[in-house]
Design a protein around this nucleic acid. Structure first.
Lengths: 216, 216
DNA sequence: TAGATTGTTAATCGATTAACAATC
DNA sequence: TAGATTGTTAATCGATTAACAATC
């Protein structure tokens, strides 16, 4: 009893640790210090130590952390061991770019289906996958054990696709359409939104350029 | 004196307010309540009231907020009034998709240049812009008053491009390459990282599927 | 040993939220 | 007036960070 009272690490840092170590593990890098990781990822050292600690990774005082151990622990924590099947809905330029993205394979993911509403695209092959009609969404998701959906359709179609994915039993959605999706909370949604990012940049640029006119 | 002691709103919510209102302002929507905004954006009502309040927007008790006023205040705050010139570096499928993205125009942004290292692409037109050689980066940035750079090149080329953009005097970078960029802190970087997002999704899916095996 | 870096607590910080008086 | 919704404080919450003892 007396549950250990420790705040979990913010998950979004873990992929960055993983990536910077994975990339260097081949270079004979045996040990890494929190200082090095801080340089490579931009996070603060104590934050990194706390994260690794709460992951259950033991470092060696005076030396640092064993790279292989850390990579393994991160991979286990992030679920990279089990294969995740992904469907990409919408094969415009964006969907096309995503389908070719090399990270899927290295991250325990597989593009199990490409769907589009345009019949002309049907049969078109990208990587290992072939474009199919979006009408097949439900069957495809069920038949291929797909748990993650990537939405790369125009904004107006996004909510509809999201609902169908949710009903089909998907667990997570990565949404590239500039819309807020409403889905049951059994479904986790991450938004990747160019327009939001641009506006945030614009905000900071303006803020840097000069103070906003002083209004109460 | 006695500076008003108020935490600024987390900027990333403002674009979502803006978008959901902008989209509905045409539909004769005059007033909006924090409850409605909560439904449309997924944020909590008190958070929304606080955000609007710290923006200096006065609502009407019992009615809500005047939509036009809110949209205007958000736009001013986000810097949507002044035009921002953007360069997209890397015109693969992703860069191509970004160049065609309709949000630029509506968000006070203009794609002022498209750059790529592949000579075969030079002269290719997308939207209002024509692909030029990446060697021209410095000249183009200076000549066209470009303040934001979008990096859509392969991971290995990203850091190099980022440095050149920084030296050229850019103020903000939107980075789509799966690399942590190291730049002077005069440059603001926002990362849009498919692999990170996928790993985060995978993490939550795994966490939902069942507890991790109990290790100290 | 001397030097370095971890492990871990406690303090800090900032953002979110509950709650309710104010008032349209 | 009655009903609704804002304005704003205070409490809560969680994450970040400073700091330093522990120890390889």
């Amino acid at each position: 009893m007396g549950e250990r009272r420790v705040s979990k690490p913010t998950v979004s840092r873990l992929p960055l640790y993983w990536r910077s170590l994975e990339r260097r593990a081949s270079d004979d890098l045996r040990y890494v210090s929190s200082e090095q990781l801080a340089n490579w990822t931009g996070f603060k050292e104590p934050t990194i130590r706390r994260d690794l600690w709460s992951l259950g990774v033991a470092g060696v005082r005076g030396f640092g952390y064993d790279v292989a151990t850390v990579v393994l622990a991160l991979g286990r924590h992030l679920g990279l061991e089990r294969q995740t099947n992904v469907v990409i809905v919408g094969v415009g330029h964006l969907g096309h770019a995503l389908a070719q993205y090399p990270v899927f394979a290295t991250h325990g993911m597989r593009v199990a289906a490409l769907l589009d509403a345009d019949p002309d695209l049907a049969g078109y092959q990208i990587g290992d996958a072939v474009v199919e009609d979006v009408d097949c969404l439900e069957q495809v998701v069920a038949a291929r054990d797909i748990t993650v959906g990537i939405i790369a359709v125009p904004a107006d179609a996004a909510q509809d696709v999201a609902e169908r994915l949710a009903v089909a039993g998907i667990g997570g959605i990565l949404n590239f359409a500039p819309r807020v999706l409403v889905v049951p909370d059994t479904v986790m949604v991450r938004n990747v939104d160019l327009s939001v990012e641009l506006q945030i940049l614009a905000y900071y640029l303006q803020a840097a350029a000069g103070p906003v006119n002083p209004q109460a």
